[in-house]
Design a protein around this nucleic acid. Sequence first.
DNA 1: TATGAAAACTAAACGGTTTTAGCAAAATGT
DNA 2: ACATTTTGCTAAAACCGTTTAGTTTTCATA
Lengths: 341, 341
Amino acid sequence: MSKKISMNDIARELNISITTISFILNGKAKEMRISDKLSQRVLDYVKEKNYNPNTVGQSLRTGKSRIIGLVVEDIADVFFASVARLIEEKAYKKGYKIIYCSTENNTKKTIELIRMLRGRNVDGYIVTPPKDIEHEVSSLLSEGLPTVLFDRYFPQLKTNYVGIDNYNGAKTAIEHLAKQQYKHIAFVTLDSGQTQMADRLRGYQAAIDDAGLIPHLLEVEFSAKPQKLVQQIIDYLTQNKNIDAILFATNYLALRGFEALQQKQLVIGEQIGVVAFDDHAFFKVFNPPISAVAQPMKELSEHLIETLFKNLNAKGDQQITPVEIILKPELIIRQSSSKKL
Amino acid sequence: MSKKISMNDIARELNISITTISFILNGKAKEMRISDKLSQRVLDYVKEKNYNPNTVGQSLRTGKSRIIGLVVEDIADVFFASVARLIEEKAYKKGYKIIYCSTENNTKKTIELIRMLRGRNVDGYIVTPPKDIEHEVSSLLSEGLPTVLFDRYFPQLKTNYVGIDNYNGAKTAIEHLAKQQYKHIAFVTLDSGQTQMADRLRGYQAAIDDAGLIPHLLEVEFSAKPQKLVQQIIDYLTQNKNIDAILFATNYLALRGFEALQQKQLVIGEQIGVVAFDDHAFFKVFNPPISAVAQPMKELSEHLIETLFKNLNAKGDQQITPVEIILKPELIIRQSSSKKL
DNA sequence: TATGAAAACTAAACGGTTTTAGCAAAATGT
DNA sequence: ACATTTTGCTAAAACCGTTTAGTTTTCATA
């Protein structure tokens, strides 16, 4: 397999100009009126020697890299990992690779990451932004770098955004619980203040109001360690013994919540009704199966990548107006939220 | 924030040579006898203008990219996603980024992926190899490109490898089940023929033999759709009604298995004992909690990245002899595998 | 047989950094 | 006073592919 050969090598070997090779390899042979005979000779040689253009050279010259930067909160989280996988698949088909980074929701780290990606000529950005990076994002925009936000957004910033209707997702879940005759429905969420969380909270409050119930809100510390999270939920349940149902604002919170319920010996689906935001493969086979507000993962990823590609392909300064795509989540009702009457 | 400034811009602005700037910025000022005064002037200017060297230029020149290629079976799988996250964190601290790709265990796709990464001057490779890519891997090796395999390996190939003792992992799990007086312990695995699966199977067989029990083996189709997997397990259980415990060879198989058990109305921990290979966050809060053979994720990732870095830092042709690191998995016993006596 | 135009191809610049080799000036030694 | 060394800095090549702005050759037309 020897070492890689370069365009220069080919030019020397075939005794033609490097430019000619470039034209032929980039499908500009016709346009540049290269004879079919020469074209074929080059193409054959290239195939024979198994030549691959050096991506780095291309990138340096063109300023493009065919790399998409995926900047998410935590790549180990099922939600983000699933999105990553689906995006990767679609990107791959169009010849793009993904560089991913986990922000840990850390503003400083995220800014560093975006700068690094920029230094690498990354062509497009898919980002779940933490707080206070409006400036960094808008600087991407002002440089005309295709960017799509997802999961959360900045209300003041006109960007591409793909997400779900968190308000109605939460509202529908609460309506369902209310219909099941649960009377003291708690909402366990994070104090992160991000838009998706705020929207879910508003949905919860609206539905509770509509049903004439009392709100029970637990906002746990965003950056707390798992053990502390569990303890906070246990304490809350101990102090609010009347709670008969819980909506967890994320998958991860549900996990911690289940630990708390386990320790309090409260049986899901019997003493307490449960719905979780974001579905999880294992929810279906839980005992009892767990109800969930499911995000349409495939659609989400499709819209993300398509929006990005639309901007990627927009030639030059031809500005594309940012789009906001809000998808409908689906409430999947399983036994964890049905009172055995 | 205007457009990026280049070394050329700095050189022109400060009226000095580009070379001098390079020396100063790369800590070679002393060595190259640049005066402190000039050094400081450049450093100040660079800071003021918020200059960042163009990574693509550096990469073209040096042949290095500070990128690690992570080629795993499926980035959406918790096991791989967790490894990805841990590796990313460590790599980031050393100034490396990750490009990841999912192989789907497809040999052809994997070869393409590795070639693409090579074209991007990726500095090192962490790979869970599918079948029949020995040649591609050994060609990486022969070019001196740092490579570490994990999860599975090629017995005939002398490579860096980090994995766990799958044989004893399975063996210990079965010993535990046998001690719990389970008499007909099945092993549900894949027909993929990969080393990690083969090792687990050998461990199962050895333990079954030692305990004087009859083996019950179900090898499901590797590439089957979820629904088909579930059906295969259901059929197997229907035809082998005496089975009272199951060891699932992977997390993913356990998920399908649980679906099958659910449909057969067999209650885990009561009618049937269960242990899964690979732990999962949700196993702890299952009802009943699921026993698992847990891989030491942190250690695994640490060894992966450290082995890679050792090779990355090995100057020139100074060959480092490949290492094989086999970690001990831990059997976490929960209620799913204890007979209520 | 000029004249113009199309056809076929190429030199050179560009992009940003690193490295090699080396030059001029100042300092030191004899 | 002259040779040698050290200091401080730089030009130019290299890395690899793309693009601009040509040049030369060939062919058709008047």
